[in-house]
């Protein structure tokens, strides 16, 4: 079955191995090979990629913000295409997204929310 990258992959939802929503495909990375056709390397899930698609400056600003979260941050989070298993309307990941940067903002907020009663 042919897959159209823009129609079937870009902006579609990712669901991880626990069934949690793990963001959307914000960008697709292709590799150009000498003499061969381009290959899909990975998908990006990141507010940095999202920002850059709208406006370069917005993306750079997102990257600066993201850098504060740790030494390896500040670049878009990439998932090798080999870790993306199912291709329906939603795309499936074969790992848990919880410990990855996809959930960084969620974890940061959760820590602060847990001090509010009822959370």
């Amino acid at each position: 079955m042919p897959i159209c990258l823009i129609r079937d992959v870009l902006d579609n939802k990712l669901v991880d191995s626990d069934g949690q929503n793990a963001g959307r495909v914000d960008g697709i990375v292709l590799e150009l090979t000498e003499g061969g056709p381009p290959r899909v390397l990975c998908v990006e899930v990141s507010p940095i990629t999202l920002g850059r698609r709208l406006n370069r400056r917005l993306g750079d600003w997102m990257a600066r913000l993201d850098r504060r979260f740790g030494p390896e941050r500040g670049v878009p989070y990439r998932i090798p295409i080999t870790r993306v298993t199912g291709m329906g309307v939603d795309l499936r990941l074969d790992f848990r997204a919880e410990p990855t940067p996809i959930f960084a903002a969620e974890r940061w907020l959760r820590e602060r929310l847990s001090r509010i009663p009822g959370a």
Binding site: L14, N21, A22, G23, V45, L50, E106, I116, G118, A119
Partner: peptide
């Protein structure tokens, strides 16, 4: 944005 959502989930 593909976040987790649901009024039945606990806020955390």
């Amino acid at each position: 944005l593909g976040w987790n959502w649901g009024e039945d989930l606990k806020p955390r």
